[in-house]
Amino acid sequence: MSRNPRNPIFPAGVDLPAAGGGGPLVRLWRARSELLLVLTLALVALTLLTATQQGRWVPLLLLTSAISVPAATRMGRNWIAAHFWCVFSRHRLQRVCLETTMHTRAGRIPLVLWITPTTTGEKALILTRAGISAEKFEAYSEEIAAACWARSVNVYRHRTRAQLLIVEIVRRDEVPGADAPGLDRLYGRRAWVSLRPDLEEPPDLRTQVMLSQVG
């Protein structure tokens, strides 16, 4: 009988720590985007307040223009929306780990090291904890897709480092030009193996371009 990764991995009748445990550094890492945003807003507000008190209107106009102009352009709005979904998906991935068996006996969940926008959604680079594998993420792919408000989820394991995996969140059709330099460029597509036999391995980006030109 093959093991079902969805089955509970903890013995019944044993009191375990609440899931989501971690030290202060882990909690700060999980909230890094929100903390950076709050720090940036506080710095901007302090700069504006200082400029107005000193009667210096030129720095005030330059700063407000630097903030408002990108938000008024289509490219700026797309960038903001793409990174909003990255933060949203990161928190939802962590919530799925808390609500399922994808955490350790001590209540620790896998670390989302990095998440980046793609042409179809987002890709998250994840470092698993002891006792958790890429196969478990694949077993919970439907739960992850539902939690992230996405169409589907694909899981890829690193060829030589089983503790690293990529969760690809597909939420829309491919949008040309929406891809950002991220996981593919840093780690390469050939380093990852799909856990689904019916899903072909992601081709190299140059191969994709060549095939589209030939077609």
Score class of each variant (00 low, 15 high):
4 N>G: 11
8 P>F: 03
9 I>Y: 08
9 I>N: 11
10 F>R: 13
11 P>F: 04
12 A>E: 14
14 V>T: 07
16 L>V: 08
17 P>M: 07
17 P>Q: 11
20 G>Y: 02
20 G>N: 04
20 G>L: 06
28 L>S: 12
28 L>Y: 09
31 A>L: 15
34 E>H: 12
34 E>W: 07
34 E>F: 13
39 L>C: 13
43 L>Q: 11
46 L>K: 07
46 L>V: 10
47 T>R: 11
50 T>N: 12
53 Q>C: 09
55 G>P: 01
58 V>K: 06
60 L>T: 11
60 L>E: 11
63 L>R: 02
67 I>V: 10
67 I>D: 07
72 A>V: 02
79 W>R: 11
80 I>D: 06
84 F>H: 08
86 C>S: 06
87 V>F: 14
87 V>E: 12
91 H>G: 13
92 R>W: 04
92 R>M: 13
97 C>G: 05
97 C>F: 08
98 L>M: 15
99 E>R: 10
99 E>V: 02
103 H>V: 03
103 H>D: 10
104 T>F: 04
104 T>N: 03
106 A>G: 11
108 R>N: 11
108 R>H: 12
112 V>A: 04
114 W>Y: 11
117 P>F: 04
119 T>K: 12
121 G>S: 07
121 G>R: 00
123 K>R: 13
125 L>Q: 06
125 L>E: 05
130 A>N: 13
140 Y>S: 00
141 S>F: 03
142 E>D: 14
148 C>N: 05
150 A>N: 02
152 S>G: 02
153 V>H: 02
154 N>M: 07
154 N>G: 09
155 V>H: 05
161 R>A: 15
161 R>N: 14
164 L>R: 10
165 L>F: 05
165 L>G: 03
166 I>E: 08
168 E>T: 00
170 V>Y: 10
174 E>V: 03
174 E>A: 14
176 P>K: 02
179 D>R: 09
179 D>K: 03
180 A>Q: 15
182 G>Q: 04
184 D>I: 00
185 R>F: 12
188 G>V: 00
189 R>G: 12
190 R>A: 15
190 R>Y: 13
191 A>F: 00
192 W>D: 01
193 V>G: 07
198 D>S: 09
198 D>K: 07
199 L>R: 11
202 P>S: 02
203 P>S: 10
203 P>R: 07
205 L>Q: 13
205 L>N: 09
205 L>C: 09
206 R>E: 15
206 R>V: 10
207 T>Q: 14
208 Q>N: 10
209 V>N: 10
211 L>F: 07
